[in-house]
Every structure is written in C-alpha cells, then in structure tokens.
Amino acid sequence: MLAVVTTTAPWSAAAEVAVALAARTGGELTGCRIDPEWRELDAAESMSIPVLGSGAWDDGAQQRDDCAFTEFARERGVEDAAWCTAQAGIAQTLRQLGAWHDLAVLERDMVTPERVPDVLGEAMLGCGVPCLLLPDGRRLPSWPFARVVIGWNGSMEAIRALHAARGLLMAADAVHVLDGAVVEDEVGRGLPRFDPCRYLARHGITASRSRVSTDVGSAGEVLLDASVRLHADLLVMGAYGRSHLRERVVGGASRYVLEHAEIPLLMRH
C-alpha cells in the first residue's frame, strides 16, 4: 500500500488512513512525499524540467521523516513500513511506485482545485492501481467506511473498481449499487454479463441496488447526489478518460466527481 502524504508534522490524512488500512490487512506500507514544487505539474510539464542533483535535498530531513514514519506506522500495528521522497510529477511518481503497490492513498488538496482533474486525474488514469482519494487532507474520514455507494455502468473500469474495493466493502455496514448500466449495447453484445450484486454476494457482501437513467453529461452529478441522499462515506467508481498525445485526460463523470466530491473516492481505470 502507498500513502502519498502532504505533511509530516503532523502526518496528513493519507498517512493516517493508509496506516489504518495496512494495520487491518496486515499489509506492507510505503509513505511518499513529493516535492511541493513538482506537485502541480502534469506529466508533460514535469518531463521538461531537469531533476536537481541529490545535493538539493536535505538528507537529514529525509532520514528524520523515514524514522518518524516507520515509528508512526509501528505504533499503529504496521511492522513493515518504508519511506521515500520524489522529485517528479505526481503522474510519474505514481506510475513508478504503482508497479509494486496494490493501492494508492492520495489527498485531493495536494494540488490546487483547478489542477485536480488534469494532474490527479492523469495520475489516476496512468498508475495502474486503484486510488483512494481523500477530499481534504486536513480532515480524517470515518473508518472503516460504513456506507458505500458503487457507481455502476457495466464497464471494465467499473468492474476493476468493484474488485479493488472488495476488502473495504466487506467491512462496510451498507453497500448500495447505483446501476446505470445499459441493458444491451453493441460493444458488449455476445459477451458474458457481469452482475455486481451476484459478485458481491459470492464474497459474503450483501448489497442493495437501484436503477438510474442518466446521460454522460449528468452522470457525475447523479452519483454525488445519490451519495448524499444515501449518507455514503465512500464512493466507488471506475476512472474514465482518453489519451491525448502523451497525456491522459480524465473526462465526463470522472472529472465532475473529482472536482466536486466531498467524500472519499475509490477509483480504478
């Protein structure tokens, strides 16, 4: 598990939540702090800036953070914890670290609001692992997540997100599938259908389901409105985007939810 933290004294929400998750699952944990000067840059921008030599880093501060993080994790039941720092953009850092982690915990306010869809969205589309995005790094969410809404449209991204969230769903008190999947479509014709509620039931998770009818332009708003109505403290959904030259651009419902969600999101491309 990977926690991309914004502050180390005190530890920001990503560290707190990731440590709690790792302690619950008995997993390994890596904490990472990205140089603030690089956080606002998308992949193309960060590739154009030369990396400074190791002398630009405060090695003493890094060692202190390393010791502090491992002690912080150990006190909360995580025996295998490591620390690293990055002098690269968020997308590049997550793509690198995602190769050997199975979940990344991020804070939305690690970038300015207007850069969230482009910088964090690009990182989530390209990292290859599910991302748990916390809405405000200064406020801890409830844990474990008690009421979870799943935004379902039948896509491969939605299936991956559901599969990635299974451990969190098993600890929840209530799970609701907001089903906006098209019953028949040209792309999926002739292929086996995936039933999210049946999948969850096979893993001991009882879920309720309601159908919604919406278009692409309003899907994000519908998801967030339903999450508020159902008092959800976590929204699970696929992350959707498109490639644009060397960049990955998040769009549609994903962009709206990234910009406006006030609860944690678990997203998977």
Rank of each mutant, 00 (worst) to 15 (best):
G137R: 05
L162I: 05
A172P: 02
C131S: 12
M156C: 06
D173Q: 15
G151V: 01
E157S: 10
R160Y: 15
N153S: 13
P130E: 02
L178K: 04
A164S: 15
R189L: 11
V187L: 15
L168I: 02
V182C: 11
R138L: 13
M156F: 01
A164G: 04
P130Y: 03
L133S: 05
L134W: 02
L169T: 01
S155A: 13
R138C: 12
R139K: 15
A164Q: 03
R139Y: 00
W143V: 01
A164H: 03
V177A: 08
I159E: 07
W152R: 04
W143F: 14
R147I: 06
P141V: 13
V183M: 10
S142G: 15
I150D: 00
G154R: 00
W143E: 04
N153T: 11
G151H: 03
D185E: 05
V149H: 02
D185W: 00
V177L: 13
G128T: 10
E186C: 07
R139E: 14
W152I: 07
V148T: 14
A171D: 12
V177G: 04
C127M: 06
A171G: 01
S142I: 04
M156D: 07
R138A: 15
R160S: 11
V177Q: 05
G137P: 15
H163Q: 13
R189F: 12
D136I: 06
E186F: 15
G188T: 11
A161V: 09
L140P: 06
H163F: 14
R138V: 08
L140K: 09
I159K: 09
A181H: 03
F145P: 00
D179Y: 04
H176V: 08
L162W: 05
D136L: 04
W143Y: 14
G167Y: 08
D179I: 07
A174W: 10
V182Q: 09
V148H: 09
R138H: 15
L132P: 00
E184H: 14
V187Y: 08
L162R: 08
H163S: 13
W152S: 05
E157V: 04
L132H: 03
A146W: 04
E184S: 09
G167P: 00
V183G: 04
A161G: 15
V182H: 04
V149W: 00
C127E: 02
V183C: 07
V182T: 14
V148I: 15
L140S: 10
M170C: 02
W152F: 10
G151Q: 02
D173A: 14
L133Y: 04
L178T: 03
D179M: 12
P135I: 01
V149P: 13
V187F: 10
L134Y: 04
G137A: 05
L162K: 06
H163W: 08
L169K: 01
R147L: 09
N153Y: 06
M156V: 11
A172N: 06
L169M: 08
V149K: 02
N153F: 06
G188S: 14
F145H: 11
P135R: 02
W143S: 03
R160W: 15
A146V: 03
A171L: 11
R138M: 12
R166L: 15
S142N: 10
L134G: 03
A161N: 11
D136V: 02
D179G: 05
L169D: 00
